[in-house]
């Protein structure tokens, strides 16, 4: 399969993820959308890595996955705490920090 297929899928995933972040109110859904964007990037890395026969891209994917996993751990913990105090995880209601 040509490279452009992979890149096209990656693009679609990224746009879907971005739209999810922008449009959804639920913090957990926003998190899932973020994961989607990470994986879109990962897919692009893998595709280029295979296309150019260079292993660096695949290595980088592992880094991204590790960082994403730790980020989720912190993020979910934050969401739990926020829910306990605010009784909501609607991102638009967490707007007290403003100028």
């Amino acid at each position: 399969m040509p490279l452009s297929f992979y890149l096209g899928l990656s693009l679609i995933m990224f746009v879907l993820g971005a739209l999810g972040v922008l449009l959804r109110h639920n913090a957990i859904v926003i998190f899932m959308s973020l994961e989607l964007m990470f994986n879109a990037a990962n897919l692009a890395f893998i595709a280029f890595s295979a296309y150019h026969q260079v292993v660096t891209g695949q290595l980088f994917v592992f880094f991204v996955m590790a960082v994403a996993a730790s980020e989720v751990a912190v993020g979910l913990a934050l969401i739990v705490v926020i829910f306990r105090t605010k009784r909501t995880i609607n991102i638009d209601q967490l707007n007290t920090l403003k100028g």
Partner: peptide, 11 residues
């Protein structure tokens, strides 16, 4: 004026 940009909405 610029402070109004920081409105608290993460999105």
């Amino acid at each position: 004026f610029f402070a109004r940009l920081q409105n608290g909405y993460v999105r």
